[in-house]
Amino acid sequence: MAVLQGDIKFPESLQRRLDENYDVVFEHDVENLKRRRDEILAIVVYYNKPSKEKLNELIDDLPNVRAIVNHGVGVNNIDLEAAKARGVQVSNLSGAEVSVADFAFALILAAARNVVQGHARSHNPMFTKIDFDWLGKEVSESAIGIVGMGRIGTEVAKRATQGFNMKVMYYNRKRRPLDEEISVRATYCESLNELLGNVDFVVVTVPGGKETSKMFGWDQFCAMKETAMFINVSRGSVVDQEALVRALKEKKIAGAALDVTDPEPLPCDHPLLTMDNVLITPHIASSTATTRKLMFEVFLQNVDAALQGKELPNRVI
């Protein structure tokens, strides 16, 4: 039995499979939830991301919960220590690394080569003459810095070396094994600032959470080259957005391409939305039919394991 958070339902195809294969209780159905609290074995968290406090309340109110199954890669919306103290397993999803790495390069290319601005100019009825002095930034054989060399970061590195012959530098909490570095031709940096000052593109793929909250602030943007571009496909929380706005205005960096912001979406009057050197997309890096199907299958494997009392395949704790 699973508890689905809030009023937002899964896509129709997923909801149908859940209804056909599981006994589902919705968190907002308070009376039903109270009546069947002893039967509930797993809490399912979808994209609406309830607060940590709300999840802790559910853990406390549901005595037989075995697991929290998170339909997403990040688990910063879950109080892992509280779950661990209760003996509740937590899982996340895998399978998004290929599409997210692809999208990171879509952002790199779009930002570097003025794709969005060029599209807008071409559709503008006032556009009558091509400006041959309007130049983009070369991607091939430039230097890329990857912050967070997990599954996604490694896929970004593969594309950088194999597709664009880029020099790859990376910063991670722990250095990767030498054979992994060699396979993607990546050089480890002992400090974040060492990386920032030596690359043309900074790509962030770290998880969200306390450890990475506002990891990129004024000092980090000032440490980057003035010609460098900042690419974020991780979480909006890793960036101090006021510092990013200031860095862009004062030309401490050349531009930014963001698939994630804080909040999402940004308020319509946010300064990032008015800047010509900023590209923003609505958290769609993993949004392909193939990836979503794969993530869905992994999600169901974790649900099945939770209801059977087994260890979750994608266990985080």
Rank of each mutant, 00 (worst) to 15 (best):
V139M: 10
A111K: 12
F164N: 08
M229H: 02
E190G: 03
R315N: 13
K310W: 15
T290I: 12
L196P: 01
E226H: 14
Q15G: 01
E57K: 08
Q220E: 15
T290W: 10
D304N: 09
F299M: 15
K310C: 09
F201E: 06
M166Q: 11
L135M: 07
K225R: 04
W218A: 14
N48I: 12
N172G: 07
G217V: 12
L55S: 00
L14Y: 10
T128C: 03
E264M: 15
I152G: 03
G6E: 15
V206T: 13
E226Q: 15
P125S: 04
S213G: 00
L58F: 14
E27V: 08
I40Q: 03
V44T: 12
G163T: 12
E141G: 08
M166T: 03
Q5G: 09
V202N: 07
A110Q: 01
K52G: 06
A285M: 11
A243I: 13
N314G: 06
P313Y: 11
E180T: 13
Q89R: 10
G208C: 03
A143N: 12
S99Q: 06
L273K: 12
L107E: 02
L107T: 06
K251P: 02
P282A: 15
T187L: 06
R66H: 07
Q308D: 12
T205W: 02
E20F: 04
G72I: 12
D259E: 10
C268R: 10
E97K: 06
R66W: 02
G72N: 08
P177N: 14
P207H: 08
